[in-house]
Write a protein that binds this DNA or RNA. Structure first.
Length: 111
DNA sequence: GAATTGACGTTCT
DNA sequence: AAGAACGCCAATT
């Protein structure tokens, strides 16, 4: 009953993404124990668009703003990332690995 | 109610 | 090594 669905878990992880950092769908999925459910993360983001989840900080594993087409504006997602100090060009994040935030790594490093 | 799609990533051939 | 197929869960048609 209290088992949260995959989606709910994704929301929580996405909300934990720090400012100026980005992550990938696969990273979140892997953190939840379902590396092959990366697609579901994307679906969750689609639902999270109406929530307080910074979906603009989540991109695919190449750092490509694949879901930018789901945002209102055309470059809204890109502008949000640039606003946080992340360099984006051609819908792709520059130094993606540099701004990468792995939940299964950063969070576990706390303890 | 069943079949298909969907912000991806891994695994097999 | 490169390309194709599969897998995951939920929502939509």
């Amino acid at each position: 009953m209290e088992e949260k669905n995959f989606f709910d878990k994704v929301y929580e992880v996405a909300q934990q993404i720090p400012y100026g950092r980005v992550t990938s769908y696969g990273a979140i999925a892997k953190y939840l124990g379902a590396a092959r459910s990366a697609r579901m993360v994307g679906w969750a983001m689609n639902n999270s668009l109406t929530k307080d989840v910074p979906a603009h900080r989540v991109v695919n594993r190449v750092g490509l703003l694949t879901g930018k087409q789901h945002f209102d504006g055309t470059n809204l997602m890109q502008q949000l990332l640039e606003n946080e100090g992340i360099q984006v060009e051609n819908n792709q994040i520059i130094d993606f690995q540099k701004h990468f935030w792995d939940p299964g790594k950063e969070l576990e490093s706390f303890y």
